[in-house]
Amino acid sequence: MRDDLQELVDEVSRVLGAPATLEDRDFTLLAFCAHESGPAPAETTMDAVRTRSILGRGSTPEVRAWFEGRGITTATAPLRVAADPAAGILTRLCLPVRAAGELHGYLWLLDGGRTDVTDPAAPGLAEAVALAAEAGRLLAAGRPGTTDLAADLADVLTGVGGRAARSLDAALGSRTPVSVVALRPAVPGLPAGWRPPGAGAISAVLDGGRAVAVLLPLADDRDVRPAGALAASALTGLPTGSTAGVAAARRGCADLPGQWREARTAARVAAVDPRLAPAASWAELGAWRQVAVLPGPDPVLGALLTDPVLTETAAVWLDSAGSPQRTAARLCVHRQTLYYRLGRIAQLTGLDLADGADRLLLHLGVRAARLAAVDG
């Protein structure tokens, strides 16, 4: 996935100490890199133009016209494009990417105005110009590089490596709050033409269509409601019985695998607990979070779990805090029937249902069996 152009952009970012973006002459994004050293705040390393370019794979005609009006199409040397605060545009350094005098694209650096383009001896400038020339030769030779954020997301979640996570951080901003949504289709595969909703969202189909991951930037790491809304909206295009889960928010993409586990757990729980269906968040799972890490129910429950009526009775009784009245009402049975079933549960398992530890074992085991059933 990473080719010569991506390595080149990484090097430009390093030598000038600033986030770098490479676009072709039509403003189509080819590669980008965040500069990860130093404490520069996000507002100095990301603006609306860079965000749209990375997430939208290019710039709008209006943005293109604005920059072309600053003389970049005829430039043969580095030039400074001044900021436009009203438009939300930060100052940036433009390195024309040329080969044999022909324009092939642009290297952009959000350097905060540090590099003096009028000084050939400015730190890193000559090396950056040489790298821009190398990019021109590569583009002229017909070897453009591309950055596929969906593939990066899939790589991170399947454990391929850290470079993809850095790519996503560069796209979104290393301090940007993000959440992950897991979609669990009721049947493997996705409807033709299905696309997850959400402006700025990045999605990846995993496990042969058995799961869809959606990475969503948030405005606030204390508010995952936009991710919940995306999950609910996405489910409307999936088969009945599909579920979704929402992970807790983090800043940046360093813990995407952890967020993916949270989101998938929430989607699994939503498939077995009607109170949380069809979309659940990690924050509202409660004891299900502990159940999800269990390898399965305790073997002592084996005989009980072969009887679906008694298993359901145990689950409802435990969820009702052992109340005979509430349990009988929820099961629509006479109280004597309930007492008979509880006796059978005790006989089959050897557990003392009046003992708190035994009841805990039973409760965790019944829930673990329910999760195992949806996974199977």
Rank of each mutant, 00 (worst) to 15 (best):
W260F: 11
A211N: 07
D24S: 07
R92C: 11
R210D: 05
M46L: 15
V49Y: 13
A248T: 14
E102I: 05
D223E: 11
L157A: 09
T327G: 06
G105Q: 01
T91V: 12
C94K: 01
G145N: 10
L338T: 02
S323W: 04
R225V: 13
G161C: 08
L301R: 01
L157Q: 06
A346V: 06
S233L: 14
Q259S: 14
A31S: 15
R70M: 13
D273Q: 02
T236A: 15
H363E: 13
A328I: 08
L285N: 03
A99R: 07
D223S: 10
P239W: 05
H363L: 04
A77C: 05
A83L: 06
G296F: 02
P19H: 12
V366Y: 05
P123V: 06
T243M: 04
F27Y: 15
L125Q: 11
Q259M: 15
L190N: 04
R50Y: 15
A369H: 14
R70P: 06
L371P: 01
R70F: 12
Q336F: 04
A75R: 03
G105I: 06
L364N: 01
L110H: 08
A164V: 11
E284S: 13
A271E: 00
L238F: 11
A20Q: 06
T327R: 04
D319S: 13
A65Y: 07
A244L: 12
A211T: 14
G286M: 05
T51D: 12
G228L: 14
R264M: 10
A231G: 14
V272H: 01
R367F: 03
T60L: 15
D298I: 01
A204Q: 04
T337N: 09
A182H: 01
A346L: 06
T176P: 01
L256P: 03
V293H: 10
A135R: 00
T158L: 12
L190T: 01
V97K: 00
L351R: 10
A48D: 15
P144K: 02
L305K: 03
T115I: 15
A346E: 14
R251H: 10
A315F: 10
R344D: 05
P78R: 08
A150L: 07
A263P: 02
V272Y: 00
Y339K: 06
A164D: 07
R344N: 07
V333R: 04
A266T: 03
G71V: 11
R137F: 04
A211R: 15
A279H: 04
V309H: 09
G105Y: 09
P239R: 04
G376E: 09
V180S: 02
A254P: 04
L235M: 03
T176F: 00
T147I: 13
A170I: 05
L238C: 09
R222D: 13
H363G: 12
G17R: 13
G173S: 05
V160P: 07
A271R: 08
L305T: 03
V156T: 12
L90Q: 08
A372C: 09
H363V: 00
R370T: 02
G350V: 08
P191R: 02
V205E: 13
L107E: 02
R98A: 06
G198E: 05
S203A: 15
W317K: 03
V129H: 00
G376A: 15
V205F: 08
P308G: 03
A204S: 12
G245A: 06
L216F: 03
A328N: 03
